[in-house]
């Protein structure tokens, strides 16, 4: 069953393959060949590809910053599952070389006029604001006029860690009434964080798999931790309670979720598709079971982040 689900994901390469690296890797699979009952190895491949997804990015210093000489742009492959402020030390160092200390305040990022929220995973920011644009992703770096009505301050990595752990705890409240995360020790929490911070897939997943367990007889988590983001909306995201299994015992799909939470995202029969439903840069089939998506396409914060963006018109 799982193998066939994987195909659903993989098949999206036919639909529209976004250009960033993470997704290309996802697209290369030919998992259909594994036959009816899939092996764990295949699933692990998906987890690995999600984890190692990268977005080529060009950082440019905001023109209004005062510099002593011209600032060259800086190129970086950003991990989709990480956070901007966690992986941009080199960017900061690079631009500080041409600036005077007194002209430097808290660093923040902007894309085409939109301040980028560091507390959303990088892949979510890209899918939401920059899908269907030319790569590399062009981000503007600022060192003054921090928009504190739009962005959370991020003075240190411990703030990112707190945010990350708080998301994991909230997700586990939904999945297991907090039982798994509360049974973990402090060092286990640390292992999750260090895994993300140091880009250690095995370290992270050795612990994270506990958060992905559920009683077989229940067929899934209590509720699916998800957030649906919409570009061009005042409301940052939709987050409600939704179970992976219907009262009749059927697996809920991505389509079921959207139909309830965001019906306009699903095209009516015969009408052109107005929106793309994007997770990690791909458009999973709406028939994909939600429980499988939650286990395999969630970000390390244990939430399934779903972006609904307008279909490109060209």
């Amino acid at each position: 069953m799982v193998a066939c689900l994987l195909c659903c994901v993989v098949d999206n390469r036919k639909v529209s393959l976004p250009l960033d690296l993470g997704v290309c890797v996802l697209g290369i699979y030919s998992l259909c060949a594994t036959g009816g009952r899939s092996s764990m190895a295949d699933d692990k491949d998906v987890l690995r590809d999600v984890w190692f997804g990268r977005i080529p990015t060009c950082f440019t210093l905001n023109q209004d910053e005062v510099t002593e000489r011209e600032a060259e742009p800086y190129y970086l492959l950003l991990p989709r599952v990480s956070y901007l402020t966690l992986v941009t030390d080199k960017v900061k160092k690079h631009f500080l070389k041409v600036m005077k200390a007194e002209d430097v305040e808290e660093m923040w990022f902007e894309y085409e006029g939109t301040p980028l929220k560091w507390h959303y995973p990088i892949g979510v920011l890209f899918d939401l604001h920059a899908s269907n644009t030319v790569l590399p992703w062009s981000i503007t770096v600022h060192f003054k006029n921090f928009p504190d009505r739009d962005l959370l301050h991020c003075p240190s990595n411990s703030v990112i860690e707190a945010h990350f752990m708080s998301s994991i705890k909230e997700a586990d409240a939904l999945k297991h009434k907090s039982q798994v995360v509360n049974d973990m020790q402090k060092k286990d929490h640390k292992q999750l964080w260090m895994g993300l911070q140091n880009d250690k897939f095995d370290q992270f997943w050795a612990m994270n798999r506990k958060l992905m367990e559920y009683p077989t007889e229940e067929g899934g988590f209590r509720y699916i931790p998800f957030r649906i983001y919409q570009a061009m909306s005042d409301r940052p995201f939709i987050q409600k309670l939704f179970r992976p299994i219907s009262p009749e015992g059927n697996a809920h799909t991505l389509g079921n979720l959207l139909k309830e939470m965001y019906p306009t995202a699903i095209p009516n029969d015969g009408e052109p598709k107005r929106y793309q439903v994007v997770i990690h840069g791909i458009e999973p089939l709406l028939e994909t079971p939600l429980q499988w998506l939650s286990e395999h396409l969630s970000h390390p914060d244990n939430f399934l982040h779903i972006c609904v963006i307008p279909t490109p018109t060209d």
Binding site: E105, E106, K144, P155, S156
Partner: peptide
């Protein structure tokens, strides 16, 4: 310590928030 640290770092760090 840590609840207080968020603001502290921004004031103490190299990249002071001058505002």
């Amino acid at each position: 310590v840590l609840v207080a640290s968020a603001g502290a770092d921004s004031i103490q760090g190299d990249i002071d928030d001058e505002d």
